[in-house]
Write a protein that binds this DNA or RNA. Structure first.
Lengths: 229, 229
DNA sequence: TCAAAAGTGTTCACCGTACACCCATGG
DNA sequence: CCATGGGTGTACGGTGAACACTTTTGA
């Protein structure tokens, strides 16, 4: 194509994806053993190259769906990494996304567990290229977002207990929270539906299950409501 | 080059820059009349294409310095825009940065005022492509950052009065603040140096000038200090 | 009956916010 | 001497944090 831009350099543009999951205990990320050079056999984020006929969100969705078989996953673009030698094979810019998925609802599903594996953030292996820095930045973005948007629920099953929710926030924020304060703060937000149903797995008494009430949340938003944990 | 990536698509990668300035009254952005097709003659952000031998920060710095002659400017990358037809000429991805500069220290300086012009955010013209959306997102990032990082000072002269600082925050946050509360909050932060010198322009009594004490701020950071307006 | 997790309120310190008067000075 | 902007303190309500005991029930 010959136009006003035709003398400009073109680059390879990748999309890399930090996939967060929560198993009720720890915040985890999904990594794959890279099956092509360079750095074949090392642990890596999932990623792929942007194609001419798609935008970045679509590329991220495609890459995620290809590995996990999942659609309708919460994703957010957070930063473009562009260090000259970040990929030794060729100069590549990478736009990073993070995704939030509920491990339990999908772990016996489509994720190719032969090449992919969940790691607790604490004991994840070193990753190729600048992927460790991507993870750091993703975690910091996630911490911030969970405090101000109700995206934590994306990491939980549809029905969850108050304790699961608290454990989730504790792992993301990386600190212990007080049970009574947490419960009353969440109740004050008034965006959960308390079900009749109880989860009987965790105790003899059983603990109530909740749904996130997305409609109510969006209603409240219009009236100036501010989500804050 | 022939390698593992050689079958992948390459794209044009642009850098666009929202340049914020403050004149003591209004928050402004610097725009240029585009002097090449497409959309020649329309108002636009400054931008340019990423070159093979530079990273994105360098490209943004180069683009800014080329238009304004300024170096050592505070810049932050904030989002990559990738809609397929965002540039009608050819498929282009743009990584957007915002920059903070002090208008008064530079307005008779190197900025090419024949092609560039400062606009108050309120009455800026419509911009080409998706630049309006870029500005929106930049403003929202700026609002958030100024509340949690001492970057507002980048928009002020080195010496400034308390009232100028308050006016700055009022224009960025787009709301009136209480003078006494603002002053005591800023003083409580304890990161300004109150000079002996007064600004005699604005009143007969004169008002004290302040410096931002960057060293002290960084010291306090190490001790767990949190900046918050 | 007992072990184990669920559920539930109160108190206090601190912070955000509302609010008004005197001061200093140049003209 | 007066008009103009500069500088300063207090009171109150609300929010965040600390803290412990009772309930339920399956084993």
């Amino acid at each position: 194509m010959l136009n006003n831009y035709s003398k400009e350099d073109k680059v390879l543009l990748a999309v890399d994806c930090i996939i967060f999951g929560f198993d009720g205990e720890d915040l985890k990320i999904l990594l794959i053993k890279r099956d092509f050079e360079p750095e074949k056999g090392k642990w890596s984020l999932i990623g792929g190259f942007l194609k001419n006929e798609e935008n970045l969100d679509q590329a991220a969705t495609r890459v995620l769906s290809h590995l996990t078989g999942l659609d309708n996953v919460y994703m957010e673009q957070f930063y473009a990494f562009s260090k000259l030698d970040r990929d030794p094979e060729e100069r590549t810019i990478s736009v990073a996304y993070y995704a939030l998925i509920d491990i339990d609802s999908h772990n016996n599903g489509a994720i190719h567990l032969d090449t992919a594996k969940w790691f607790s953030l604490k004991n994840a292996p070193n990753l190729i290229f600048d992927h460790d820095r991507m993870v750091e930045r993703a975690v910091s973005r996630l911490k911030h977002r969970t405090k101000t948007k109700p995206i934590g629920f994306e990491l939980l099953p549809e029905k969850f207990t108050m304790l699961q929710l608290q454990n989730l926030y504790e792992s993301i924020l990386n600190k212990k929270l007080d049970k009574r304060n947490f419960t009353s703060k969440i109740n004050a937000l008034d965006i959960l539906i308390k079900l009749k149903e109880k989860d009987m797995e965790s105790s003899k008494k059983g603990s109530y299950l909740y749904n996130f009430d997305s409609d109510k949340y969006h209603e409240k938003l219009k009236e100036g409501f501010v989500f804050k944990i």
